[in-house]
Design a protein around this nucleic acid. Structure first.
Length: 303
DNA sequence: GCCCAGGAAGGGG
DNA sequence: CCCCTTCATGGG
């Protein structure tokens, strides 16, 4: 086992708990088993862990990463050097101060950014992210997380680390081999056939979420809707939380409420038109950052 | 019991 | 193209 610590003065503002428990990613687990339950200010001091698939240019091998935030440090334990992996997954390479500087001066955005200062977007691996958000339809955050954990435990490879057995998220091939019935047994409900058929599409090489790299934003969103269970909203989540389209603004129930209450002129009827309007209102290039702060802020009870 | 949760598919107009 | 209904499941 390797271990180390990343000094946060080299990273800028960072809040691990807000980043991992804000409903962007469902692939991390809290070692104390209390995911989404107890919250504390700035960082949280809890250990989080995940099994990372090989990522080109980041890690050649599958890795286990465990991380916690203490004052001024991001402490980690891993099967390998976790610095490039954490930098990739938690977007430590984003210049958050510059992003805030490019964000329009709107009261709602100011309150949300103030409340969760340091929260980053995540950069999830594409296939697990795609499956996670197919599962997110009409479902609470904690239950989406439970579904991903059960799929990993039941269908993913076991990985030994520090005397315990963790589980990698299943590959497309592993999920495609499962039946709709087996997925329903994990309480996926009507999402079970969506997950199964999308996994088949990826496993068969019929389509690949990573194929959108280099596409123009709306073209990329349109591409992702070919997957079963993926409409405009889920496509935007995958673009934002996995594929580096920071301008993507997923129009979920919370952001639609925010539009109705704060920016009614942005409600242009259809998804594409409303998306363009709120994207422009939130500053364009980093509009997805603003959306994610607003989502977490409103869901936690802010106004 | 009722209502809701980071929606999407399938049908009809 | 837009509008409507249906689709599981668990927690409040």
């Amino acid at each position: 086992m390797e271990s180390g610590a990343i000094p946060l003065e080299s990273v800028g503002p960072f809040d691990l708990q807000a980043t991992v428990e804000s409903g962007q990613t469902y692939l991390w687990d809290r070692a104390d088993g209390n995911m989404y339950e107890t919250t504390s200010a700035h960082g949280g001091d809890h250990w989080y862990e995940t099994v990372v698939p090989p990522i080109a240019g980041v890690t050649d091998e599958r890795a286990v990463v465990r991380v916690r935030q203490t004052d001024g440090l991001l402490e980690w334990e891993s099967t390998t050097d976790a610095v490039p992996i954490l930098t990739h997954l938690l977007r430590l390479d984003d210049d958050l101060d510059a992003i805030l500087g490019a964000t329009p001066d709107l009261p709602l955005l100011n309150r949300a950014y103030e409340e969760y200062r340091g929260m980053r977007l995540v950069r999830d691996p594409p296939f697990p992210c795609l499956i996670s958000f197919i599962c997110s339809a009409q479902m609470r955050v904690s239950r989406i997380h439970g579904m991903q954990m059960r799929m990993a435990e039941q269908f993913g490879d076991p990985v030994e680390f520090d005397g315990r057995t963790l589980h990698a998220f299943p590959t497309a091939e592993q999920l495609a081999e499962r039946t709709e019935e087996e997925l329903r047994d994990l309480s996926l409900g009507y999402r079970a056939p969506y997950v199964q058929r999308t996994a088949e599409m990826v496993a068969d090489g019929e389509a690949d979420p990573a194929a959108v790299r280099g596409m123009e934003y709306e073209e990329a969103r349109e591409y992702l809707t070919r997957f079963v269970g993926v409409g405009d909203k889920v496509a935007d989540c995958v673009l934002l939380f996995s594929l580096d389209f920071l301008e993507a603004v997923p129009l979920d129930t919370w952001i639609r409420t925010a539009i109705a209450d704060h920016y009614p002129e942005c409600d242009a009827g259809g998804y594409a038109e409303t998306s363009r309007a709120i994207r422009e209102r939130f500053g364009g290039e980093y509009a997805g950052y603003a959306q994610t702060y607003v989502f977490y802020y409103l869901r936690a009870g802010g106004e």
